[in-house]
Computed example of a mutant assay.
Amino acid sequence: MRAYICNAFGPLDTHGPGALPAPQPADDEVIIDVAAAGVNYYDTLIVQGKYQIRPGFPFSPGGEFAGTIAALGAGVTGFQLGQRVLAFNSYGGYAERARARARQVFPLPDAVSFDQAAAALVAYATAWFALYDRGRLKAGETVLVLGAAGGVGLAAVQIARAAGCTVIAAASTADKLALCQQAGASIGINYREADLKEAVKAATAGRGADVVIDVVGGAFTEAAVRATAWRGRVLVIGFAAGDIPRVPANLLLLKGCELSGVFWDEFLRREPDACHAQVAAILAGIADGTLVPPIHGRYTIEQAGEALRVLAERRVTGKLLICPGAGSTF
């Protein structure tokens, strides 16, 4: 089958399209004909050996994908051949077929397209888990989103807005901030031009943000902690800026605030029932139009390397998809 292949860890330009054997289902696994796979920042890391998961070679990146069930392994119940589904498996999605453990496969409502589903799973589930579970979000609170024009950022903007919160979007360009405001942000801050702490304080009459979504890291994390309100919750999701921050612990003490890690992959593995309930709520929100996953672009398997480069260079507003397309052979 066609796939985008990593034969050895290395820079993005050392990987490319090729052929892999079609996967066969092990016990409790589902094989899926991939219609669309989401492109995530960790995909750029996993092929370089910089992610916490290091697959055996050769492998294809792509942790989230949507399509129809092609085969069921022994012990799988509750699914049927041809069923529309959404799945997560850390890697394997940039291919015509991919495998996933049955407990990491989600039924897909007819009202949600494959593209919408693949654009939503990791970003929206991460944002939902961060805001509602780790952040205990309540209506009326103020939410600061760093990296607000990315996949998780825009998802957080939409979810927080739908929850009745005031959303402050922080991004690096005016165009990105305009997109965030279209998604529901009330206030935009260009954190390349303005002092993040002072801008948030000014936007909140000195009070600060109740909840912070941080997918950026670097120096912005400490600035965000300094911009939190009393009993604020800072939710650390990633480090797109490249540097892992060190936050002075005295700031947490003085503000009575929390600094929490958000690792959605592990939440899915350890607490699948709770995760399934959250994903079902997200898909219902997409089906009724409350949540609208923004899609930046679609790429073929042969173009996957370009998609990874575009994402790594932070030239994306919304979600990129890998779409294998028609004419598949196995």
Rank of each mutant, 00 (worst) to 15 (best):
A98V: 01
K138M: 15
G56L: 09
I168L: 07
L251A: 09
Y4A: 01
A223F: 04
A227D: 02
G285E: 09
E193L: 11
T290V: 10
P21D: 05
L45F: 09
T166R: 14
Y124K: 09
E64Y: 01
P293M: 01
G327M: 10
V236C: 08
I187C: 02
F57P: 03
T300H: 14
R207L: 12
D33V: 03
D33C: 00
T68R: 15
A71V: 07
G325K: 03
H296M: 00
I237W: 01
D110Y: 11
A119E: 09
E306D: 12
T228K: 13
G135S: 06
A130I: 10
K176W: 13
F59V: 01
I322C: 00
V76P: 10
H296V: 00
E198R: 09
R315M: 12
Q181E: 15
L321Q: 05
G140W: 12
G49L: 05
I286M: 05
I286W: 07
T173E: 08
G82R: 07
E266Y: 14
L253I: 14
G208Q: 13
R161T: 05
Y132M: 12
A241I: 12
E141H: 04
T77Y: 12
A194P: 03
Y4H: 00
G208A: 08
R192S: 09
G18A: 01
